[in-house]
Simulated scan of single mutants.
Amino acid sequence: MAQAESISFFTGLTMRWFRDAFCSEEKQVAERLGKDVYTLLEEMASHVPCGSYGVMPIFSDAMHFKTWYHAAPSFINLSIDPEKCNKPTLFRSLEENASIVSCCNLEQVFEFSGANPEFIVFAGGASKGKLWSQILADVTGLEVRVPIVKEATALGCAIAAGVGAGIYRDLESAGETLVEWETSYYPNPDNRQTYQELKHRWLSIYKEQLHLVDDGLTTPLWKATGL
């Protein structure tokens, strides 16, 4: 059995940074309403059009194993129009960008593994977001399944322990028995086209942002030891 992995760096940390740095008012409103602040932010961001008016976050890069460093954190294509460039737009753009990075990483995995899945699984804290889950489906063009148990690491350990203890025959059968689905999200073809174009622009812009790091003009979000 083999595992293929491609990492998107600091995705959750970036969302938490945005929440803590810019959304103190939304935190207070969410507390009064008795809801999670991310749920409130997603509700606000759901009114922003697909593509976030062209705002493009530069944070984690797609995985490049031989050049393991990132560009300086930034937002590209900001405007001074408060109706378009505001907290909901920036929040949605971060979810869109994280999904684009995930899509790039998945494409690398599919290419070297030959995998051609009919669906992907979205787990962890981010999968609680309905908007984020739909964006991921739109960006990848694949059905996105969200499990009931979202703490995938803990569930995976339980599955492995069950196989080791002889309760289940193998990992595959244990997974089929223990993993249950909460819901699925299906790609919107129109949004898929928009995100394909956005992904190509983002890849070109990120490449240019890396040149600024190479020239010592900006500080990378992250850089591997020894580079």
Rank of each mutant, 00 (worst) to 15 (best):
L33S: 10
G34D: 13
D36F: 13
V37F: 10
E42S: 13
E42C: 12
M44D: 15
A45G: 05
S46Y: 11
S46C: 05
V48A: 00
S52E: 04
V55P: 08
D61Y: 01
A62Y: 11
A62W: 15
A62M: 05
M63V: 04
H64Q: 14
F65A: 14
T67Y: 14
W68M: 13
H70A: 15
A71W: 07
P73C: 11
L78P: 05
S79F: 04
N86F: 10
P88V: 05
P88T: 01
P88A: 13
F91K: 00
S93L: 00
L94I: 13
E95I: 15
E96H: 09
N97V: 03
A98Y: 03
S99F: 07
S99E: 04
I100P: 04
V101L: 01
N105P: 07
N105R: 07
N105C: 03
E107Q: 15
V109P: 07
V109F: 04
F110T: 04
S113Y: 12
N116C: 10
I120F: 01
V121G: 03
V121K: 08
A123H: 08
S127V: 00
K128W: 02
G129F: 03
S133M: 02
I135P: 01
I135E: 00
L136N: 05
D138P: 06
T140R: 10
L142M: 02
E143A: 08
V144N: 10
V144P: 08
V146F: 06
V146D: 08
E151D: 15
A152N: 11
